[in-house]
Design a protein around this nucleic acid. Sequence first.
DNA 1: GTCTATACAGTGATAGAC
DNA 2: GTCTATCACTGTATAGAC
Lengths: 187, 187
Amino acid sequence: MRAVFERQDTLPLIAEVFREFGYEGATFSRITERTGISKGSLYHFFPDGKEEMAAHVLAHIDAWFEAHVFTPLARDEPREAVAQMWRAVLDYFHSGRRICLVGVFAMDETRDVFADAIKGYFQRWIKALKQALVRAGVGRARAQDLAEECVAGIQGGLVISRATGEAAQFVRTVRRLAARVDDELSG
Amino acid sequence: MRAVFERQDTLPLIAEVFREFGYEGATFSRITERTGISKGSLYHFFPDGKEEMAAHVLAHIDAWFEAHVFTPLARDEPREAVAQMWRAVLDYFHSGRRICLVGVFAMDETRDVFADAIKGYFQRWIKALKQALVRAGVGRARAQDLAEECVAGIQGGLVISRATGEAAQFVRTVRRLAARVDDELSG
DNA sequence: GTCTATACAGTGATAGAC
DNA sequence: GTCTATCACTGTATAGAC
């Protein structure tokens, strides 16, 4: 009996291995152990091996954020979209117990292959948030500042939470950032 | 002709390799290539191998921050110490072109051996900053919030700068954080 | 499609010549 | 103290049985 039958289904499992051990630390033995899929089958799903796995995992994450964060910010009523962003972020990162794989890969310059994907993820996030803030009436310069501050703050909160082992620190960080945005929107 | 003769002198070079490639990616061949020291000599300096190297590198970084940031925050006139912290941070991280190795190691849970050192680094930073803010007249709860926000913001700014390739983003992040602290101190 | 068997390079680590 | 030679092992990757 196997729980996984489609390549798409393996991505979340493989993603967790990359998250826990980083790119170099995510070895085939750890991936087979976690997924229950042998090396041979993994190469059947991902003919180009580890690099292809990582690329698909990144694309998977990107699609999630595109659907749950970036697109709402660009399309929905801005205040509601921002509120939705905070909910999505707390949910996705398990209230600080889960780190950002894109951030992890960003810190590792071993493989420039992913540089564009990583850069695009953060730039689109900042841009979408900025434009939502502008649509909500915030000045362009201030909106850019706030958006950079929020996206950077989220990453930093994840690092500190993971480092100290206190997930609550991430939740506090998000609350502070949300409050600052609210102040700006109502003030 | 060799430029390095003492173990202490090798640490900054080895640290850069860990910074660029992460713990797993920092292989002996890369370290020997960067330092010009053979494996045999590296094991002479660090009998316990890579793990000992990483431990010494972390201790080296910790000592630098202790001397240039934490101790000044605890001892000097608080406003001046905070200003010194921003200078030290911009300087140490090369205005956003260099990442935080402690942050990189924090994201990697391969080796719990360093967990305490990593945790201590961030906790002492937050605590020292908080106490300096308290000595400068900020309320305890607000000081704790601000300190967490600053240390997390620095880490996040480094991640975003590295990801986007725009070091200037880190400088802006630091400026924003410094302005917020200044507001609190004068307001 | 899934697996086992295997190739081959590179890993951390050790021994020993000088 | 510094290096080279070598170790056992694990890494990614491939071939091929079923």
